[in-house]
């Protein structure tokens, strides 16, 4: 199955940029700068409020028309769409986790005379990240599922090859799609176990 490479690279790209966007947007929403806060708030609401498939088509078909630019390739269109969408969802987790670190932790850090930046880096952030981990694992599985959409913008992923085989031999359709589903499931399995492990890690080492 040649499509596997595409599915995996799209997943890795989306995950990398998705987490990146999540941290940037999550931190911006906690910033004291009102402009930054409103702007990222707008981004998060727009991308959470519309559906991924619409965003994907919009990036792929509409952006080039609007600005006369190409995103480079459909790989980038797919990765950017998935990353922007899930980045918006996950930024809420970043924000929520940072806010959820007990207030006493900030106070203890202040009492040790840490600067604002040190409080964040040494005390708040390490604990917040532990809280984020299980949800981040869950979203990794969601992103894996989302990669199947890139076949709709002509990328040759697992689903694309499945469709090709199906259209050349209609009676094989059940076998083909069961196979495709199992491919996704096999990719998802390590992620499922990873998520369970992350849940274990996150239970330790966080103040209640």
């Amino acid at each position: 199955m040649k499509g596997l490479t595409i599915t995996i690279t799209v997943l890795l790209g989306s995950a990398f940029f998705g987490y990146l966007f999540a941290f940037i947007a999550g931190l911006c929403r906690l910033s004291s700068n009102i402009f930054l806060r409103k702007f990222t708030g707008f981004y998060v609401e727009v991308f959470r409020g519309t559906s991924l498939i619409v965003q994907l088509f919009w990036l792929y078909y509409a952006i080039p028309m609007l600005f006369g630019i190409e995103l480079g390739s459909n790989w980038w269109a797919g990765v950017i769409a998935i990353a922007l969408n899930y980045g918006a969802y996950m930024s809420e987790i970043v924000r929520g986790s940072i806010l959820a670190v007990a207030k006493g932790q900030t106070e203890a850090a202040t009492a040790l005379n840490m600067s604002r930046f040190q409080r964040m880096r040494l005390v708040i952030f390490p604990q917040a990240v532990r809280m984020m981990l299980p949800e981040f694992g869950n979203y990794l599985i969601q992103m894996l599922k989302a990669t199947s959409l890139v076949s709709l913008i002509g990328m040759t992923d697992i689903l694309y090859y499945g469709d090709i085989i199906r259209s050349s031999n209609l009676s094989q359709a059940p076998t083909v799609y069961i196979l495709v589903l199992f491919f996704y499931f096999i990719l998802a399995l390590p992620l499922i176990f990873l998520t369970r492990k992350l849940e274990g890690i996150s239970k330790k080492g966080v103040a209640n």
């Binding site: 006493g104 106070e107 203890a108 009492a111 390490p126 604990q127 080492g205 966080v206």
Partner: peptide, 15 residues
């Protein structure tokens, strides 16, 4: 910097 504090609920860093 001259002041230190011990809290009712300890507030140790759990990580």
């Amino acid at each position: 910097g001259d002041i230190g504090m011990v809290f009712q609920h300890f507030n140790l860093f759990p990580h």
